[in-house]
Design a protein around this nucleic acid. Structure first.
Length: 577
RNA sequence: GGUCCCGUAGUGCAGUCUGGAGUGCACGCCGCCCUGUCAAGGCGGAGGCCGCGAGUUCAAAUCUCGUCGGGACCGCCA
């Protein structure tokens, strides 16, 4: 090695030793002709080097310094630096690479620099301790989950990146075929199909740190390409899958934070919707939805008369904070997420409301409302009346908007949401139920009788893992019996011919003896981001893309040679006007 | 596809509401000084298509319209 130590590891115990450090010039402080201080930096930290000022080194020069570790005099010790009790003296400095001044400071100040500039010069951004830490958190997470899976007898298998297009679900990235012009591979949205075939293939327990690609609009928690811990296990029930996945998540969390989270609680999808108005409830704060339907069973208030479900949330002390303007904004928000309206009530003296609709609410209803919500003077009540689903979703949205802290703020609250509905909503064109998760998801055994009679009430053996209101991942027990698969396809309006055409290569193997199996997958960037205290997964990805998907560093995507296109049998349309 | 916010020196900002010469601030950069600093200090200097294009006006960083770029969210993400 060119160095004997790293820049962050010298201590008083090394005093007297001649050492060589290599790294970047973090900062230089000159004090006349014969004295200058140079802070040399690598990923591990910073060491102060005392040199003669005749050495011309500037910010971000790459240097090698050989010198003697010397104890600092007490008045020159820097308590803010891990290496602050020592410095390097009697130094010889070799410039390994000169550098132009960086476009932004290589320290915490760059946290406020326009992200496009950070991304254009990502290789400089990565030198900062924040990015170094975040990528190392990713690495710790990867190592921990791999170890957890090996320990549980899972086999790591790589599945293809080039696969057939399966237009269900997310929009795919397509790759033109050279050997068969006019045909395309798709990049995997997930290894779903392959991992189930691995179960048919007797692998028993599979996992992969898998790259997934989806051509959908980008968000704080979404990139075109992302990594999942993907697992599938045979002869396994829900408990087995959740248990195996949970071990890996808790191991990763412990590896990063040093603290092992408690066992992850479970709630059903129905309870999550009822109490939190969301299938990814954030358990870090209360403001739970309060059931109010019975209170208004005989109401004279027209807006509530015919509603299937009336619920509310209480904003403690919110009466003063929420003026007319803010309440109007909340009402608009409620309407845009599907409600017909929102009722707000400010509790004045503990038994009356200040509200535009107060006159429509009877005395007994007022008393019952206050009792049900445990409200006191100064509280604000927000009520929604609609069908059950809308009421829950709108209030859940309001709850998050009003009280949800940034995702990265502790404590970590993991929760399994189980028993998702098998179907969600009805396809507008076919009139058939739409699968909640996917078409191969196993119905809850207790609800099999309801499949044909009341499909919308059928629960699925499907589950999500949620952390601080972020969906980390989801999974299900799969259908392994082709007769049950047929029943589900029929409900979806897919006949045998269509099933063969769309899923044939996937269904055929199940005729040859498929073990009962199920699996799970969760996003490694999302987990790493929260564990690293970041609110955006771009911060834990070395080379992420901005919302437009255009890479400011490489210029991708780019146009290609006509010769390349010809070889692929592709001719471009003129640009749309 | 939609809603909202942002765009001024290498970087971060003030100035925009209420039009009056690129009027500035901090950091960085360049030069000089400085033997104990550590986001060193002092002095001096360079650095601008106020994102771009129209319009209104005697006059536009500032007002209007359009456009491009960025962000958060909705749609979308089985």
């Amino acid at each position: 090695m060119m160095r004997t130590h790293r820049c962050g590891e010298l201590r008083t115990e090394h005093v007297g030793r001649q050492v060589t450090l290599t790294g970047w010039v973090n900062r230089r402080r000159e004090h006349g002709e014969h004295l200058a201080f140079v802070d040399i930096r690598d990923y591990s930290g910073i060491t102060q080097v005392v040199v003669d000022n005749s050495v011309d080194v500037r910010s971000e020069y790459v240097i090698a310094v050989t010198g003697v570790v010397t104890a600092r005099t007490p008045d020159t010790i820097n308590a803010d630096l891990a290496t602050g009790e020592i410095e390097l003296k009697e130094c010889s400095v070799e410039v390994l690479s000169a550098a132009e001044p960086p476009p932004f400071p290589i320290d915490e100040r760059a946290d406020n620099v326009d992200e496009m500039i950070r991304l254009k010069y990502r290789y400089l951004d990565l030198r900062r301790s924040r990015m170094q830490r975040n990528l190392r958190v990713r690495s710790q997470v990867n190592a921990a989950v791999r170890q957890a899976m090996y320990r549980q007898d899972f086999v790591e298998v790589e599945t293809p990146m080039l696969m057939p297009s399966t237009p269900e679900g997310a929009r795919e990235f397509l790759v033109p075929s050279r050997q068969k012009p006019g045909n395309f591979y798709a990049l995997p949205q997930s290894p779903q199909l392959y991992k189930q075939l691995l179960m048919v293939g007797g692998l028993d327990r599979y996992f992969q740190v898998a790259r997934c690609l989806r051509d959908e609009d980008l968000r704080a928690d979404r990139q075109y390409e992302f990594m999942q811990l993907d697992l599938e296990m045979s002869f396994a029930a829900v408990d087995d899958v959740l248990g195996a996945a949970e071990v890996s998540v808790l191991d990763a969390a412990e590896a990063v934070t040093g603290v092992r989270p408690d066992a992850v609680p479970r709630i059903t999808w129905h309870e999550a919707m009822n109490r939190f108005g969301s299938d990814k409830p954030d358990l870090r704060f209360d403001m739970e939805l309060v059931e109010l339907t019975p209170i208004f069973s005989d109401t004279g208030f027209k807006a509530f008369e015919t509603a299937e479900s009336i619920k509310g949330i209480k904003v403690p002390g919110g009466a003063a904070e929420y003026g007319r303007n803010k309440l109007d904004n909340l009402t608009d928000q409620a309407k845009s997420s599907g409600a017909k309206g929102m009722v707000w009530l400010k509790v004045t003296d503990g038994s009356t409301f200040d509200s535009p609709v107060a006159k429509f609410i009877s005395e007994s209803e007022t008393a019952a409302l206050i009792a049900a919500t445990d409200a006191v003077a100064g509280d604000l009540l927000l009520l929604i009346a609609d069908d059950w689903m809308t009421t829950c979703e709108v209030l859940g949205d309001l709850r998050n908007r009003i009280a949800r802290p940034p995702v990265s703020e502790g404590p970590y609250r993991y929760v399994w949401v189980v028993e998702f509905p098998l179907f969600v909503g009805v396809d507008a064109t076919t009139g058939r139920p739409k699968p909640g998760h996917h078409a191969f998801c196993h119905p809850h055994p207790d609800d099999l009788d309801l499949l044909e009679t009341d499909p919308m009430s059928v629960r699925a053996l499907a589950y999500d893992l949620v952390l601080n209101g972020w969906e980390l991942g989801s999974g299900s027990i799969r259908i392994h019996d082709h007769r049950l698969q047929r029943r589900v396809f029929e409900l979806l309006g897919i006949d045998e011919e269509e099933a063969d055409r769309r899923f044939g290569f996937f269904l055929e193997p199940f005729k040859y003896g498929a073990p009962p199996h199920g699996g799970f997958a969760y996003g490694l960037e999302r987990l790493a981001a929260i564990l690293a205290g970041e609110e955006n997964i771009r911060e834990v990805i070395a080379f992420p893309k901005p919302q437009s998907g255009l890479d400011p560093m490489t210029g991708a995507p780019s146009d290609v040679d006509t010769a390349q296109l010809n070889e692929l049998g592709i001719r471009l349309l003129p640009p749309a006007v």
